[in-house]
Design a protein around this nucleic acid. Sequence first.
DNA 1: GTCTATACTAGGATAGAC
DNA 2: GTCTATCCTAGTATAGAC
Lengths: 210, 210
Amino acid sequence: MAREASGLGRENAGQRILDASVRLFATRGYAATGIRPIADAAGVTTAALYYYAQTKNDLLMNVMRTGLSELLGSAQRAVAALDDPVDQIRALIDVHVRFGASDPDRAKVIDNEVQWLEGERRISIMTLRDEYEALWASVIARGNMLRSFQVQSESLARLALLEMCNGLAHWYRPDGPMTLEEIVAVFEDMAFSLLRVRDTNPASPVTNDP
Amino acid sequence: MAREASGLGRENAGQRILDASVRLFATRGYAATGIRPIADAAGVTTAALYYYAQTKNDLLMNVMRTGLSELLGSAQRAVAALDDPVDQIRALIDVHVRFGASDPDRAKVIDNEVQWLEGERRISIMTLRDEYEALWASVIARGNMLRSFQVQSESLARLALLEMCNGLAHWYRPDGPMTLEEIVAVFEDMAFSLLRVRDTNPASPVTNDP
DNA sequence: GTCTATACTAGGATAGAC
DNA sequence: GTCTATCCTAGTATAGAC
């Protein structure tokens, strides 16, 4: 109770440092983000920063591992709970889009900054990412085999869908013209179209929203 | 004729500097690329580099403006030469995919490094990019109006298609399992599916290529 | 846990000789 | 046109006091 009674009423320094890291890595990139701006944004000195992380690279690794593990875990649980490939793809879209919308900064870092992880770290994170893509691949392959989908190239379809979902982090704004629910619905619909899902409902009404 | 008779038989220094810039900006990012590595890769000193460009930012601007102008010009000519929105979208996919495949480094720089352009330059390049996206938007809107397409959200469809095409630069290898012609064909097919093009041929045969 | 102060390296850019 | 040599700033990281 007395532990958080400091003046500013903010979270503890460790958390503030992580938050500042994600935000700055997302907006300026890992390579262009200095230790001093991170420390300034977190309201500490660089020396205090090094009390929480041994190197700047540790901050990046922390963001990557926790974020990707969370994404992969959610996706695996969603797929395991369903049987129909159509439902599974819908769930994958849902998880991915909501992940990107709930924390676009974290999504951008995970998507763009892997190359800066040093040594074994990069390999371990890329393995996680490969595992995530393999999950999508397995659902697409099964759906194609069961003739739920009609896809020419499974790998290109997977890449197209993932890029489509990743793009969200570049332009999504919570106060934009569409709600997140609307965006998710449209994304699911576009994914089904792209995969040529068979039992599609009659084409949805055409609108002109921005 | 005597002008190019120097020892190495390479292009002139100005061109070597531009080539090195694109390659390094693409692989390490603008912010993380020093002028000394650029000079080294071009086989000159940093002082010689500054004879050709006033600042490092000039090198980025050069890549951006020439590349984007070329892409926009090609796209505008292709669209102007056609009338059917279906043909126009096919042409846009074609131009964009071939642009990304012919020089992935340049495509990556154009896609990822705009934020590092200083002052008015960033605005002028973003205007070019907006013009390019507006071209896609106009084709999609007209196709939707003519009921050649059946798109729920024109803006999300445009973003999805552009992300899908941009993704090519991340994974395309000239010696990969598919030829560029095959990739273009699949991309056109996926685009038509996503846009729910009406007079689609019976679904293409399903294969399992990687 | 957090500070001040600092070591050391690499960054962009320039001067002036040739 | 291209070089050598150098200026100044900002980078990561650490030492040691409190």
